[in-house]
Amino acid sequence: MPHFASLYNFACWLAQDRAVAEDLVQEAYMKALKGFPSYQQGTNFRAWIYRILHNTFLTSQTGLKTHLSLDDDDVLIEPEAGTTPESILLARAEQETVRKTLEELPLRFREVILLCDMEEMSYDEIAQTLAIPVGTVMSRLSRARRAMRSLLEAKMQGVTR
């Protein structure tokens, strides 16, 4: 089953619930099966099936709750200006701390970081998956990483935000 394990992993990160993730993956495969005749041979299959999963999530109850609570990019966390790059501090970050930070990120930030860093998708693939322009992928990724670094550094310095 192409991309089965990674789709499930991505679904869990989106939904933050294994049972919901199973439903999402199952529904996504069923939709892919039903819509396969509309899939254009030679185009990016991975982006196509991830997009189905992503849309399935957005229209699910969990997705609607998450999505509605975050309808505007401007609401999102912004780090203070002039945050010092701390590559050494980051290198010491425990995996669990990184995971918790990712979980705490707003959905729009979390998904773009996961698609880029975890799935190693190109900006074009991310744009196809999320149905947004490549320029938006780049700006959102930049803001998402700033927010993540800020949260992570705060956690590692024991600061409650």
Partner: peptide, 23 residues
């Protein structure tokens, strides 16, 4: 230093998130 920091963030994100949940 900024590029190094971003690169480190990318690496730790990938390590922490990949195959985090297995079906």
């Amino acid at each position: 230093a900024e590029a190094l920091s971003l690169s480190e963030l990318k690496r730790i994100t990938r390590t922490a998130s990949s195959a985090r949940f297995a079906p």
